[in-house]
Amino acid sequence: METTTTKSHFFTDIRVMLGRSMRHIFRSMDTIITVTITPIAMMLLFVYVFGGAIQSGTDNYVNYLLPGILLMAIASGISYTAFRLFTDVQRGIFERFHTMPISRSALLWGHVLTSLVSNAISVVVIILVALIMGFRSSAGVLPWLAVAGILALFTLALTWVAAIAGLSAKTVDGASAFSYPLIFLPFISSAFVPTDSMPKVVRVFAENQPVTSIVETIRALLSNQPAGNDIWVALAWCVGIMLVAYLFAMKAYKRRA
């Protein structure tokens, strides 16, 4: 057999792993449906039930709401990454991969990229529903690309957090439960209502947690407004969370492998 160094095949390995976990997703479409249905239900609820009573300062509440809904969808989407990683590590296939001369981290990267793709799918589905509900944006190609970039960065950051949970959890429930607080984070932010109406303590938290700056940035980009300082705060949060989570996830991964 010819001797091959593992490094030169890093991308082949990742491609195979990505293909594998994408197949898993497309063979269990229910995961994508569950991930999109709750945010869509939230959107319907807030627009058609609470929307009339909420004073967001805009005519089009769907426009106001959409960024927060997208973040919620991503937060629940990544819990499936934790779940898939957890089940993988438990199974014999994980041991097979680790006794093969392939890149150590390819399996992990395969899951991370899969998370990116599947979350992109649910984001697109939710935007389509929002369009039917009256969402309109005057933004051009560049702002949309910027929105895509920020959502991708947010997904990556949370995916690495999910990887820590998936790799270190003791039970399946533990692996996916960590995302509940993440899903609720948008509620205590400017995603649904402006922070002005909140009591002081809550307001301080809401205005300084990552979701608010990300929501504000996306909202500004989609309505063709200058994003100002928010975009840098949002980027700093995403990159910061991603780096820290990446380091811990890799540490947890090495412990497992």
């Binding site: 197949r23 269990s28 199974r91 014999g92 296939i93 041991e95 097979r96």
Partner: peptide, 10 residues
């Protein structure tokens, strides 16, 4: 290994 090292979904 002792437990079949196959991918169940594939």
């Amino acid at each position: 290994g002792q437990f079949a090292a196959v991918d169940e979904i594939l």
